[in-house]
Design a protein around this nucleic acid. Sequence first.
DNA 1: GTGATGATTTAA
DNA 2: TAAATCATCACT
Length: 204
Amino acid sequence: MMTPARKFSFSHNILPSHFYDYETTAVAQALLGKLLVHETSAGIVAGRIVETEAYLADDPACHAHGGKKTPRTEVMFGAPGTAYIYLIYGMHNCFNVVTGVEGVGEAVLIRALEPVCGIELMQVWRKQTAPHNLCSGPGKLVYAMGITRALNALSLMEPPLYLAEPVAPPGKFNVVTTTRIGISKGADLPLRFYIKDSLFISRK
DNA sequence: GTGATGATTTAA
DNA sequence: TAAATCATCACT
């Protein structure tokens, strides 16, 4: 008789609150190699973060630049380690990790993941099969992970959506720094970070 | 109320 | 290269 698939989760490896006790650019780099996990009713999906962008309080590309607090940006001023999810271009959503000191509006955009877990689910939700095309963009990974705006403002330190240490010992990797993608203001700032030679980033 | 804008993706 | 598509925000 077949052994039933073991129920598992990554929740015992959740990144603790002190992970966020650093400036946003440092957290953006430290998030590379970590896991983003979503425990859904359909199953667990997870990916290794391979590309991020920092959005800072004094940064013209940041939704909350200059301390601009609106109904939308309010979560960016909340506790670090919460989710900031917003609609972009009327049809996709972007997923961010709120960072920085509470009361200051900063966040890290997750731009790409390497699929780790629940790839079949990702393929269904993305209507794509190629692994390198499942999570290689901020809008794409939101679909692949089953993330919706219902998760906006929720803590990333507990299920169903959370950040975790990878299970296997992290291999050594190099980080590349470039300017950010798809913005007009603040376009020259070196605030995009990705894992060198990753096949899963949104673009070189 | 109205209009400009946008941290994207996809297909042609 | 262009179209799709709509929440958000400032207010010519």
